[in-house]
Design a protein around this nucleic acid. Structure first.
Length: 679
DNA sequence: TAACAACGCTTTTTT
DNA sequence: AGCGTTGTTA
């Protein structure tokens, strides 16, 4: 007993121990990259349980990603020696909120079987509203409306709370769309991602009795990656922590890279102002990287002004210098990288421990082509999302409409798939009827059928599919959800449709559907499966075999690899042009933090590179080395030039004043393009 | 209604 | 360059 109690505290340094032992009161842990953040968090959970301060179900532990939640779940359970089966309240902000909302759905005017819609559905809904309200899409794109609505939600604003600025008549129009959008969501018995948090907060504010239930239950609250929280999420925590005040947040201001979705570092920096008597603990010893890598990263991030200030140190060896290479073009960059892996790294490391981290996911393509050519195994992490594939979304839409009659977005998606003569005309009829009578599409269709207002050919197809819906609904009571999926794919004609198309793609789709049905077995019932689909987006990655990892820097946060490649460090690509245009210096600092995240993923070796020329959207673009390259400390870097020409030094010694317009053909072209887009 | 052509937008990052 | 959306025609 005594031994196992010691176990989880043994291999911790002084600060880490301190971060774990004081359990009561607010606590902010500033944890640098590779400083054992997850270890501290998991140990703290274990400590709470072993000290009998709370039962596992009395601990609320929130993360931002499913990956992080799963990782923590596994690590905690391992430390607890499987005495505990699970921590029910360990999950993402969104999944925990959904769980709470389903318990009290009526309090926010929903049915507990409400559907959680994703971005694609959000967009469709907005488009539908714009169409119905004769809102000019050419003037303002639905995308823009969507982003504004999401921003409002992140700030905790429902339509009635939004105050539009006087000089912006368009904003008022968008607010109007927002109003319709929320109304429509209610009728559809649906929530978007933002609603999950926002409605939860509103519910707590309006129903003190419900909030009290959770006050009584959650003895301790722990939060991972707190620097990525937005206003409404911090509010959510604030409400839940109010009574016990036992809230412990872990984060790193230097790794805040999600401001574009509303994250405010302010939450992190002002934590001690909001929570009185906060204990602040800094974890500054890095256990991951060599001295050279750590120095390069530290020097780079020191160019940011808006920091809490940390001094990461390590007692590991200098290791290899960080390699910096200039390639002629993107293709040669891919070739160069694969050559290095082939000739030097393959012997030393497992391919699984090698990663190529890019700014934007499309950059992986060049590497994929190369790896396919030379037959090197690779996996794209986070790229193709399983649940976002068309055939998967179609199948899930069938399940959604079976589960929840008011799910118009699901209805619309599959009502004419495969083709059953229910075209735009009929759909428009349903929409109009539904809007006039505040009915869902399915109910509208039923009523219109009864009134005999549907064209004969359409009527035939419609009757058939509506009857099928009802049959499947009764099947659901008798059959397992995965059996139902097979029945649906068969009876709807969906499988037949795919089998009929004899191309390679359709075969792949059929494979995916098999995979889907297999995956469904992991869930107890339809409801929990649908919840997973809505919040998870990706099926478990295959970590089998030896493969190089390709992913974005955003996606790599929290991971580490022996060797890391960071290609494409070029102005316009990284730092990214669009982000600079939108937010200027603030965005530049965020891009720099992203660079910091990238570099600090490496344990032993890191390779930064850029290309002079790149094929971008069909034409060749000349490019400049990223300004971040000049910010790397000379003494930790080794330049490896791939260019034979004599002006090579030019590319390493570009002394450019970025505050003024930059003049290179590629830059000019980029600017012209952007201008064109604005017009 | 369905098939085909033309157009324009995309590719920053995600629950 | 490639895809999805929109417009035109059978």
């Amino acid at each position: 007993m005594e031994i196992s109690k010691q176990n989880y505290l043994d291999y911790l340094n002084k600060n880490q121990k301190e971060a774990i032992i004081g359990l009561d009161g607010p606590c902010l842990i500033v944890a640098g990259a590779g400083s054992g953040k997850t270890k501290v968090l998991t140990s703290r959970v274990v400590h709470i349980i072993k000290q009998k301060k709370a039962w596992p179900n009395q601990i609320l532990c929130v993360t931002f990603t499913n990956k992080a939640a799963k990782e923590m779940q596994n690590r905690v359970l391992k430390l607890l020696n499987q005495k505990t089966k699970s921590l029910p309240w360990l999950g993402t902000f969104h999944s925990v909120s959904a769980k709470i909302l389903r318990k009290h759905a009526q309090a926010v005017d929903l049915n507990s079987r409400f559907t959680i819609i994703d971005q694609e559905d959000q967009l469709r809904l907005i488009k539908n509203i714009c169409k119905a309200e004769n809102f000019d899409i050419k003037k303002i794109s639905p995308q823009f409306i969507l982003s504004l609505i999401n921003q409002w939600k992140n700030k905790g604003l429902l339509p009635r709370n939004v105050v539009t600025k006087k000089g912006l008549p368009l904003e008022k129009a968008i607010l109007n769309v927002y109003k319709f959008y929320q109304e429509r969501l209610k009728i559809l018995n649906s929530c978007d991602f933002g609603d999950l948090i926002l409605l939860c907060v509103k519910m707590f504010e309006n129903n003190p009795d419900i909030l009290e239930l959770y006050h009584n239950n959650f003895k301790y609250i722990l939060v991972d990656e707190y620097q990525d929280s937005n206003y409404i999420q911090s509010k959510w925590l604030n409400l839940l922590a109010k009574k016990n005040n036992n809230i412990c947040c872990v984060g790193d201001d230097d790794q805040s890279i999600y401001s574009w979705r509303g994250a405010e570092i302010k939450n992190f920096l002002d934590f001690s102002k909001i929570y009185k008597n906060t204990k602040i603990i800094k974890l500054e010893q890095n256990y991951r990287s060599t001295q050279n890598i750590l120095s390069a990263a530290s020097e780079l991030i020191s160019n940011n002004k808006d920091r809490m200030g940390k001094k990461l140190w390590t007692d590991s060896k200098d290791g290899e210098l960080v390699k910096l290479t200039c390639y002629k073009n993107g293709k040669e960059e891919a070739t160069g990288v694969s050559d290095i892996i082939e000739s030097k790294l393959k012997k030393k490391y497992s391919l699984n421990n090698i990663a190529i981290l890019v700014r934007a996911i499309f950059q992986t393509r060049e590497f994929e082509e190369r790896f396919l050519k030379i037959g090197m195994g690779y996996r794209v992490v986070g790229g193709t999302k399983f649940y976002e594939r068309a055939e998967i979304k179609d199948s899930v839409a069938f399940l959604r409409i079976v589960n929840q009659k008011n799910d118009d977005l699901a209805f619309e998606r599959i009502i004419n798939v495969p083709k059953r003569s229910i075209g735009d005309g009929a759909l428009k009829q349903f929409h109009e009827w539904g809007r006039k009578n505040k009915k869902s599409l399915e109910n509208s269709a039923v009523e219109l059928l009864q009134l005999d207002k549907i064209k004969p050919k359409t009527k035939l197809g419609l009757l058939k599919i509506l009857n099928l819906f009802n049959k499947w609904r009764s099947d659901l009571k008798k059959k397992k959800h995965y059996e139902l999926m097979e029945i649906i794919l068969d009876e709807s004609g969906y499988s037949k449709m795919l089998k009929g198309k004899k191309d390679l793609e359709s075969e792949g789709r059929l494979e995916n559907l098999k995979e889907l049905i297999k995956g469904m077995r992991d869930f107890d019932n339809l409801q929990s499966f649908l919840e997973h689909v809505a919040l998870a987006t990706s099926i478990d990655q295959d970590w089998n075999g030896q493969k190089v990892n390709l992913m974005t820097m955003h996606g790599a946060k929290g991971l580490e690899f022996d060797a890391v490649f960071l290609p494409g460090w070029e102005e316009g690509l990284f730092p990214h042009q669009k982000s600079l245009e939108e937010k200027g210096d603030l965005a530049l600092e965020e891009e720099r933090r992203l660079a910091y995240v990238g570099v600090t993923r490496a344990k032993k070796e890191s390779f930064i590179s850029f290309a002079m020329n790149r094929l971008y959207r069909g034409d060749w673009v000349d490019s400049l080395a990223s300004r971040f390259i000049n910010e790397l400390p000379e003494k930790n870097i080794k330049k490896e030039d791939q260019i034979e020409s004599s002006n090579e030094d030019l590319f390493f010694n570009q002394d450019i004043d970025y505050s003024e317009g930059i003049r290179s053909p590629g830059w000019a072209r980029l600017q012209k393009k952007n201008l064109k887009r604005i017009k």
